[in-house]
Design a protein around this nucleic acid. Structure first.
Lengths: 328, 328
DNA sequence: CCGTCGATTGTTATCGCTAACATGGATGGA
DNA sequence: TCCATCCATGTTAGCGATAACAATCGACGG
């Protein structure tokens, strides 16, 4: 930086001003400084800036280290959005969504003086860790606890789930079974709620819930049970991978989809269009969620403080071939 | 830090020494400093440390922002491994693997004074960007160009592909068709090479190559062609998603898997065990690859300079139900 | 024609840490 | 007993940027 200043014939402070777009700099000097910068190939040292300002141009993200499609898709979308705003993303992924590891991950971010935090906190315990974040650190949670007052972004699980269930009912099915995600996930609860509401609106009683985790394996197990019950004609799975497992179990028992049983998923993973049969599902807009998160975060960073804002992203039903009228 | 020093009754430099595990500190003072640290809840400022040492405790990773399973799995594995060694991971993901965006991503990492770089560079153009990395920055590439002299980690694509093809031949098939990944990917080329070698060893001529990208959609298109040719009895797909698309196309044409056509994939994505039918595939060990990468990187960081090292991770064939004897 | 003000630029201190050198006391061999 | 040596610790000087304040200059109103 000193070199740049010397070459441009100004003080290092003026260089700093140019770099940060301060108003009171002559166009002429600005140009000279820029010329010097390109000539020397100068790049500012972010560590020094972070030290001087007490804040880096890094956004810290905490997420679960899994190959779950939702979090992974959100993460890459976030990264894209951040770069577009001149920020860099640092990721801390935790194996378990318990309070302790998340607190530690947040701590590591704080040590780096991140400009803001995005925490993907889809279960209660993850949210508990948020209490330790100092008030002056911008924070957005994705899929977090709606009862909290932190800025929150989430897909409208309830609406998506309602649409999926209604789609099955409208196809003529008397009722719809639901294979749900783990009960400590907010997503699961909301999807259950949407399913229940759709059934209630249609005046039918909800069949017993089939709890599972998000994996195809657990879907398969649930599917084995469902396949045995010949009065089951419609199943709404809490995500596409569950639906995949369910469809395999049904197939193995000789129950055809959609002729005998209709199935709907959630997430619209890219492969679901090529399942056998191609899966009707609900597509959350992860890009929109990421963009909204960054919006809320940047608003806080630039200190337009409005706490408790939330953005709910509406999902969309994608109709494919796994739904048909009930048999008979 | 000054506060800690005061409370412990020592100089700030001694605190620094304790923090960095320097040898010449009395156990007694060390304990007093640690006590002061816990009492004050002190956490060192990483930005300051990075400024003073010229190097941060951050490992920069460059990868493609996609939901491709391989890179995503590698990334989370890397993150885990890094944390275990006291490092943090900063991710720059690029939409395209062209030289320019990757160069920029590397530049952003360099601005942050990362301790080392891991670049997932599965195509030629990505490798070209590596020339701009200064010599004193530790660098490891994953799936990179084998002709380069940088430290390199990769899964043994060729061996995996050879095993897959051989598995099909041993089941009795006269020949094996291959639906490959994009031709500019090293992975694709190696997988093609392994397939060719297995066929050559069996003394059969290789059928024409069916090129595709990595998506299920392109697999489906290739599958539509294959399904039309009744003499095709065995297909090796360059990844599981391609295999999924192929199997859907075969199914739609009434060709059963594995009775009429046998199919093998590559990657062992978690869902492949629940495809219809469950897919025989090759499982690369992403955790091992990540661990190896970090090993090589840390070796460079601690300046045991050995350039040009490479680690080739052997994959494993996972046998499921998508392979059977040829019909008739 | 002078004082005041705003625009532009320079000077100095500081962020929190580590590196390099300085210091002072205990140790041990001659 | 004395001096060289080593160990434990303290002191000082940066790392490369920004912040706060100071200085210079021209313009403008009275």
């Amino acid at each position: 930086m000193t070199d740049v200043a010397r070459l441009a014939g100004v003080s290092h402070q003026t260089v700093s001003r140019v770099l940060n777009g301060h108003p009171n700099v002559t166009t002429q000097t600005r140009l000279r400084v820029h010329a010097a910068i390109t000539e020397l190939g100068y790049r500012p040292n972010r560590a020094a800036r972070a030290l001087a300002t007490g804040r880096s141009q890094v956004i810290g993200v905490v997420t679960q280290s899994s190959t779950l499609y939702g979090p992974a898709a959100t993460l890459t979308a976030l990264q894209q959005a951040a770069v577009a705003h001149g920020y860099t993303v640092s990721v801390e992924s935790v194996r378990d969504l318990d309070k302790k590891p998340i607190t530690e991950a947040i701590g590591r971010h704080l040590d780096q003086r991140v400009a803001g935090l995005v925490v993907i906190a889809p279960v209660e315990s993850a949210n508990a860790a948020l209490d330790n974040v100092p008030d002056d650190v911008p924070l957005v949670t994705i899929d977090g606890d709606r009862r909290r007052t932190t800025e929150l972004v989430t897909v409208d699980q309830e609406a998506g789930s309602h649409a999926a269930t209604r789609h099955l009912l409208e196809a003529g099915h008397r009722t719809v079974w639901h294979v749900s995600g783990p009960e400590d996930w907010f997503d699961s609860r909301d999807r259950i709620a949407g399913w229940r509401r759709a059934l209630a609106e249609a005046g039918v009683e909800a069949p017993p819930l089939m709890p599972a985790d998000w994996s195809a394996a657990s879907g398969y197990r649930a599917g084995q049970v469902l396949a045995r019950m010949t009065d089951v004609t419609a199943v709404f799975a809490a995500n596409d991978h569950l639906a995949l497992g369910i469809m395999l179990a049904l197939h193995e028992r000789g129950r055809r989809v959609p002729e005998d049983v209709s199935v709907v998923g959630f997430d619209d993973v890219p492969e679901s269009a090529f399942y056998i049969p191609p899966l009707t599902t609900v597509r959350p807009d992860f890009d929109a969620a990421a963009a909204a998160s960054l919006d809320l975060l940047l608003a806080q960073i630039y200190s337009e403080k409005q706490r408790g804002q939330r953005r709910i992203i509406p999902p969309r039903l994608v109709v494919r071939r796994s739904v048909g009228p009930p048999p008979g």
